[in-house]
Design a protein around this nucleic acid. Structure first.
Lengths: 343, 343
DNA sequence: AGCGAACGAGACAACGTTGTCATCGACTGT
DNA sequence: ACAGTCGATGACAACGTTGTCTCGTTCGCT
């Protein structure tokens, strides 16, 4: 199989034509339903196609076709293993399959170098469009793709230095709502735990936290703010440390799903899960089955994926209106942990 | 953008050649590091490539190349939104990226028609290999792909009527271990809740359940067996119904992750979670944070994905040894729910 | 019957690349 | 100085398909 031995050759239109005793152009006409082929000939050709299990070579077709469409798109996510990314991918797949478009996918792990390498790899394969969760703070390297006619839509975050559509969660508003919800339960010392500050959404959620506090006439205590929390373990440690302070927070706002999980673990270990309030950003499976249930500001990754795919296909179909930013709202889901009052 | 207007044309080797004042064949030599190009010419060519941001057209390259490799594979999963599938995909992506191979992915939702359609779509794009979680009980339609030289490896389930490698969990052994674990805690009436019987793994896990009971000298009570449970809601209902019987089970073995989640919900609602034992097949996030923690027979989706990708690339690289079946063992993780004794 | 339109079918070029072969100039050894 | 060699470069075909053009037949109309 290494060098695709003689037997391992796919039949071509010439093979079909020989078997059906017609010219290969006639086969092309039948395959593409161009019409202008008499019924008897068409029957012969279709029979030959079936017998040989012929499938047109997509590569050659694209090469020749004038519109140059490959009916493929590239999907560059943060990490498919994260439920948020997985839900986005599933929504995109459904929209794509529906249109007969295939999807390349890859995880970037927040690495700008991978973003560049994979966008390049997909571009070289002439994808019609690219759906991208930007990693890093400069997407200008994609300008050439854009010029070459590749549609690009950013998902979950806006692009930097690149005029493209984006579909994002209302991060500031949602975070502010979560924080206000904690304040409404009586909390004044609300800690913030956020993801890496290199990630725009993490910064926006922090801004929402600050704004909410300010709007409530509360001051932001830097001692209660821990940013650049990169995983559940670090979150666990941060919660433990904060609760060990002389003047500990009475509530936590955790700005990312893994951070929330880490906080739940810490509260459990300390036996404080019914005493310290918690609101997390982004929902997760089983959050309702924990005791107490975890109150979250839920995002809607399925809607994000669906809308992003819709925009992308509109661009591919020729929409040249100015870049737009579509906002997807969050929903506060009360489950118990966010309704705990301070001591 | 619709018909890719004049500006939207990618530069070709001819464009580069014109700018560098060489023949386009020389450009090809430089691009492929073939050697035999003098340093000054090479410099000129590389400069032109940079200035035009030229990228070779992968489609054309594949069409012409003698080895016919596309450096792409197709991944056909059950559903990326399911954590098991997502973990497999992530492992496959990592192996692929490492080799400079891009990955098409799609979810089949257990639909044999989608399996056929998507395998065909990927095949027409000449993927070098196909990683497949078989949907339905006949994969013979893939024989033509195999003949055409496409490597195929099945993941999580074996193929039917197709001589290909597969990588599967030790379903029978794992299920039997879970059931024996419940019996060791003193249970005699252990219910079985399983996924659709059209799915081979669901059948194997049931066999493991039966074998374990028989090995323990216990009889299989058909009233305690509910198969074809297709989602968490149905599982919830089944648990509720079983516990409402005059002679209810004292323990549950749930043979799939969503089924387990449904069972947990039901036990919670009935307030029986500390009274009725539960062991689930397949681990899930936060299972350790529930009260009681959910004891599971954990699979290793990352290992499955990694091994499957390894086998696939070996086949692509020319391995023609007979098809093999690789087994990935399970691990029993005790967390509390499986250690509850009967009343 | 004669003529043009309409249509079925094939010949051929082209897409952007790689593989094969030819050409040309310079360098080697005697 | 001259045949032989070698290295660099280019011309050209080919991959499998679609688009354009041409050709030949049939059909309807006068």
């Amino acid at each position: 199989m290494s060098l695709r031995e003689p037997g391992g050759r796919r039949p071509t239109m010439r093979d079909v034509a020989a078997r059906a005793q017609v010219s290969f152009k006639t086969v092309s006409r039948v395959v593409n339903d161009e019409g202008g082929v008499s019924p008897p000939l068409e029957r012969r050709v279709r029979k030959a196609i079936d017998e040989l299990d012929f499938r047109p070579n997509v590569g050659a077709r694209i090469l020749r076709r004038s519109d140059r469409r490959t009916a493929s798109i590239g999907l560059l996510l943060e990490d498919v293993a994260n439920p948020f990314s997985a839900a986005v991918q599933r929504a995109v797949e459904d929209e794509a399959e529906h249109r007969g478009v295939v999807v390349y996918s890859a995880s970037l792990d927040e690495d700008p170098a991978r973003e560049r390498a994979l966008a390049k790899a997909f571009g070289a394969r002439n994808v019609d469009g690219l759906l991208l969760v930007p990693a890093g703070d400069d997407q200008s390297h994609l300008a050439a793709e854009l010029r070459a006619g590749t549609a690009i839509v950013c998902v979950d975050r806006e692009a930097n230095n690149l005029p493209v559509d984006s579909v994002v969660t209302t991060n500031e508003i949602g975070a502010a709502e979560g924080v206000r919800h904690l304040a409404a339960a009586g909390h004044r010392r609300i800690a913030f735990l956020g993801d890496r500050t290199t990630i725009a959404t993490a910064r926006q959620r922090y801004v929402g936290y600050e704004e909410a506090l300010r709007g409530l006439g509360l001051s932001v205590d830097p001692a209660l703010v821990v940013r650049d929390v990169r995983d559940a373990g670090v979150a666990d440690g941060a919660v433990t440390a904060l609760l060990g302070r002389p003047d500990p927070p009475t509530a936590f706002f955790t700005a990312q799903n893994l951070v929330t999980v880490g906080a739940v673990r810490a509260l459990r270990r300390l036996g404080r899960e019914h005493a310290v309030a918690l609101v997390g950003f982004d929902d997760f499976l089983l959050a309702d089955l924990l005791r107490p249930g975890v109150t979250v500001v839920a995002q809607d990754p399925t809607a994000i994926g669906r809308i992003a795919a819709g925009l992308l296909f509109a661009r591919i179909d020729g929409d040249t209106s100015p870049p737009q930013r579509r906002l997807v709202p969050t929903t506060l889901i009360r489950r118990g942990s966010g309704e705990i009052a301070p001591d």
